[in-house]
């Protein structure tokens, strides 16, 4: 069952990667990358049980932390960039209020 889970995880990661390459907007790509990172955490945990090495779980834990922080950071970046572009198109009053 562990090998089947491993294969299913690889299939799901390839599908998420296809959406990340194909996605029309930037939010589709961020969503697919978030899903890819979560599945990577699961993949590391399953590989740890397949190889019988429990030290890999620390890597999975650290990868979960890094994935969450990077997704929030990239979202912040694009949110502020879109606000800045919108403020420069409409005028300077809203940018000063924001």
């Amino acid at each position: 069952m562990l090998n089947a889970t491993l294969i299913a995880l690889l299939v799901v990661m390839s599908l998420a990667l296809a959406r990340a390459i194909k996605g029309p907007s930037i939010h589709d790509r961020i969503l697919a990358v978030n899903m890819f990172g979560t599945k990577t955490v699961l993949l590391i945990a399953v590989i740890c049980f397949t190889f019988g090495k429990p030290e890999f779980l620390d890597i999975a834990l650290v990868y979960a932390l890094i994935n969450f922080v990077s997704v929030i950071g990239v979202l912040r970046y694009f949110e502020f960039r879109s606000r800045h572009q919108d403020g420069t198109q409409n005028g300077t009053g809203e940018v000063a209020s924001d």
């Binding site: 089947a4 889970t5 995880l9 599908l15 998420a16 899903m35 599945k39």
Partner: peptide, 13 residues
């Protein structure tokens, strides 16, 4: 878990 994961991935695609 594999079933829900594959369902979500197909829905995402």
């Amino acid at each position: 878990g594999c079933f829900f994961m594959l369902t979500g991935a197909i829905g995402l695609l």
